[in-house]
């Protein structure tokens, strides 16, 4: 290494130094920007460990006079975050299973068969995924009331399953088209029924797209706020998004409690994001329709 350095001409050494300085500036600027970007997150984390008295008297930009976990405890039990989170799971998991299963059925038919209306049905699903929710609110509200499902988990599970079918079908249908047809034909020649081909060959081969979709859809359904607002009334059934909005009304000035609640509410999606990040990003790019 040393000999190499000695052999280089002085001009090149200056060039190297220039590169090093440039890299230092680049990393410094990026780190500063990243920290600035995450200020809202970090500062709410810090706030949730403090008390409102402390913040009111000393302001946020002061050394905390005491650090406490009380606000998390209070948010968990007294502010009912525990219950809201449970509701979110009761709504999200069946919706997820339902939409993935139904969308995989649709996608198999759309990707692997030629029949009248194939492209039209596909268009319908893709168009549906971009609709503004507002166009559905009133009739769905009416339908849910007619079916006697108002203020039940079932209403939310059904609408999430139905609405997300569009996106899931879009992604999975395109994925299934990339599976080579020879595999399926070989199975067909062996006398395998269509449902078995779908179930035992197509689905296992589509697992990557299923994983990406499951991760992405989990966050989306978990983070839904509007439908919970429209289709539920009882506080006991609210998912965590709608629950947080109620908290804000209830504990107007207690910012440490609200930020603690918000952080607890984010834990499941953050967990998914941290461990399944690859699938999450994959889903996003698949879904942009490139």
């Amino acid at each position: 290494m040393a000999t190499v350095a000695n052999l280089t001409r002085p001009g090149e050494r200056a060039e190297q130094r220039r590169k090093l300085v440039f890299a230092a500036i680049k990393y410094g600027a990026l780190t500063a920007l990243t920290l600035l970007w995450l200020v809202p997150v970090f500062s709410s984390l810090i706030t949730s460990f403090r008390t409102m008295d402390d913040i009111s008297i000393n302001g946020f930009w002061s050394i905390p006079s005491e650090v406490t976990l009380d606000k998390f405890q209070e948010a968990w039990k007294a502010a009912r975050i525990r219950q809201y989170l449970l509701n979110s799971f009761i709504i999200t998991i069946p919706s997820l299973a339902g939409m993935l299963f139904l969308a995989s059925l649709t996608s198999y038919a759309l990707a692997r068969f030629r029949f009248r209306g194939n492209l039209f049905i596909y268009f319908m699903y893709v168009a549906g995924m971009m609709l503004p929710f507002q166009i559905l609110l009133l009739p769905v509200f009416r339908l849910v009331n007619r079916l006697g499902l108002y203020d039940t988990y079932a209403a939310l599970i059904l609408i999430h399953t139905a609405f997300q079918l569009g996106f899931c079908t879009f992604v999975m249908r395109n994925f299934m088209r990339t599976v080579p047809g020879e595999i399926l034909d070989a199975a067909r020649v062996d006398g395998c029924g269509e449902f078995r081909i779908y179930w035992q060959i197509m689905l296992p081969l589509s697992l990557p797209s299923l994983a990406a979709l499951a991760t992405l859809e989990f966050t989306w359904v978990f983070n839904d706020f509007l439908w919970a607002l429209i289709l539920l009334q009882s506080d006991a059934l609210r998912p965590v998004t709608a629950g947080l909005a109620t908290l804000q009304g209830q504990y107007v000035t207690d910012w440490p409690l609200i930020t603690a609640g918000a952080l607890l509410a984010t834990l499941p999606t953050v967990f998914v994001f941290v461990f399944l990040q690859r699938y999450f990003i994959q889903g996003l790019t698949l879904g942009s329709g490139k």
Binding site: T106, A109, L136, P139, A162, E194
Partner: peptide, 26 residues
């Protein structure tokens, strides 16, 4: 010819009742 429609029937019914019909009904 019926096979693809059998695959489509259940999801499409759900989709029409909850998404397509409401859009028009609005």
């Amino acid at each position: 010819w019926l096979i693809p429609y059998l695959f489509l029937a259940a999801p499409l019914a759900l989709y029409v009742v909850w998404i397509i019909a409401p859009t028009i009904y609005t």
